[in-house]
Amino acid sequence: MIEVENLSKRYGDKVAVDGLSFAVKPGQVTGFLGPNGAGKSTTMRMIMGLDRPGGGRATIGGRSYRDLREPLRRVGALLDAAGLHKRRSAYNHLLWLAQTNRIPKTRVREVLRLVGLEDAARQRAGGFSLGMAGRLGIAAALLGDPPVLLLDEPVNGLDPEGVLWIRTLLNDLAAEGRTVLVSSHLMSETALTAQHLIVIGRGRLIADTSVREFVRSAAPSHVRVRTPEPERLRDVLAAAGFPVKQASDGALEVYEAEADKVGELAAAHGVPVYESAVRTASLEEAFMRLTGEDVEYRGGGR
């Protein structure tokens, strides 16, 4: 269980994290989402005791990270895949980590096998691809067999096979009852992995909800109807109390309505319908809608 209470951090006059509160529960994968620059990494560093909070606190199992004895046995983290010495071998990287927390050498071999790096164990980390470095980072996080895992953008640089592997791994770890927090700026990838979401923008909490609920509330589904008489159908639907919008191609978007009801109303009033379809908003749309105003670095657009 990770608990964040009213956490704040500023760098100079720039607020990175602003009164953030949430709890990460065991037994499920929790996605930590937000656009780049939203404060995800800063929050994770504060949970890990690397950065001092400007205000508030973060605890793991009720204790702050800096108070944990042999913390690798309590919390595994992947903060940045680049935290490797280029000239040190993968095995030796894991070895010194293990020694700090009195983790036996046999476990180093075990995690190397688990992430598929046993053949690269003696290679220098500087020669690793982004994907291999990512796997080594995961191996380091799993070294102490911890009940809590914090992974910052773990799929970055992984090939499709690696992405699938990590998705399965995270779900297996959560199914074992562990607390798993995974940050990402990619909504669709997170939706495939996570069951719960914590969404932040500009350092503030935007949503703390299940993936399903998030999509439903953030961007509701609607019925899309194509008809040669949009004006008449619009009046009919409006009179029945349904909000209606006209899309750019002339089709109508009917909200808060079932497709059956829309069809019945059209038939009752003799309006021909060429096409009727239920559209569920994509996660990307839901994400964009919620964080739209909170994107810090926006593309110029046209």
Partner: peptide, 13 residues
């Protein structure tokens, strides 16, 4: 080398 964060995660005191 950038290993300081890994080090302080392993030995936070």
């Amino acid at each position: 080398a950038g290993t300081i964060r890994a080090s302080l995660s392993a030995v936070p005191r």
